[in-house]
Design a protein around this nucleic acid. Structure first.
Lengths: 178, 178
DNA sequence: TGCAATTAGTTACAAATGTAACTAATATAA
DNA sequence: TTATATTAGTTACATTTGTAACTAATTGCA
């Protein structure tokens, strides 16, 4: 805003205001929203946020494997593996082995328990989202959505290493037995 | 029998799209940004995000106690305690005991190491923020900031229990020795 | 073929984080 | 006063999460 005050004061307090710092503000908002949602999922339905996301993605795209869920959601593959195992144990997901490639294990929301749970949770999630959005005018909603997309793109492009080790020649050497 | 389209399809996939779900989108953006920042803080300066926030708040408001930092930042008091101890050990913070109330321990960024570090990190944080904001027009920036505030307010109001146990009569009983 | 590299998913372990209970100091009020 | 409650901060422990290494299956190419 104002000008050549590029120098920080030599003494006294520093000018930086954490509360106006965009990454901090985003983090705070996300935490507030996640806390509310997570508590609800956990208390009412015994699933955590990762499990909810896995169910939601598979509800929309049946037959994805754990790997493909990771590609769609940018969640860690170990986290997905744990969530999937827990959901399969509780019979919320069905898992089969692809006979053409026995490493792949396509997943589906189980018609009985899984789908029933999703049909209960999805409307709750949508209602919560609507309550949040009610704080905004329709124009604000559209602008916010568009801005989120732009920031996501920018933030991704600014990040040093995301997804580079598999491609480049940075080999992940297996144990060497000489 | 007759059917308003309020019902989810009885079979096939469910309509819900995680990628358009606001809480998920916010979480994804925050994680992308935080990952970039955290990596930088950690690799270049050996501090984590909580420690960075503690330093930043104390740089602006010298003399706050751990408790007061918590009130300003909505961070957990145990997390703050750990961050403060680590920073004091590394002589980035100075801690004294308030003689008027010996439970309180006002904190300050140490003039030598602490302030030097902050003067290095603050401009980096600001530069990162500017790179993000460069994806937006000035009008978009203002609108986004305003919308974040509205959503934060709304999300806070929607949350069931935040900060209610200290006030209400939900006593945290100490051990009973009969 | 056959051997190195790659891939999907899991396991083991360390580091980070949350929760509850704790100590020490102060406040309250009978 | 003195006992009870409250407050600031810490500690102990359990749970969650991230990282690296691992198995099993498949691919690719010499």
């Amino acid at each position: 805003m104002n000008d050549p005050a590029h120098e920080l004061p030599a003494e006294g307090f520093l000018l930086f205001e954490l509360n106006e710092f965009l990454p901090y503000r985003l983090s705070l908002l996300t935490n507030t929203i996640s806390a509310g949602i997570a508590r609800n999922y956990r208390d009412q339905h015994e699933i955590n946020v990762i499990e909810w996301r896995v169910l939601a993605v598979l509800g929309r795209y049946p037959g994805l494997t754990a790997k493909e869920i990771g590609e769609r959601t940018a969640m860690d593959k170990v986290a997905i593996s744990r969530a999937v195992n827990s959901l399969v144990e509780r019979e919320l997901l069905e898992r089969v082995t692809d006979p053409k490639d026995r490493r792949r294990m396509p997943l589906q929301v189980s018609p009985a328990r899984g789908r029933t749970l999703l049909k209960k949770i999805i409307p709750l999630a949508q209602a919560y989202e609507q309550q949040l959005l009610a704080a905004l005018t329709p124009q604000e909603q559209k602008a916010f959505s568009s801005t989120l997309n732009k920031l996501q793109k920018k933030a991704t492009s600014l990040n040093p290493t995301i997804q580079s080790e598999a491609s480049a020649g940075i080999q992940t050497r297996r144990r060497v037995a000489p």
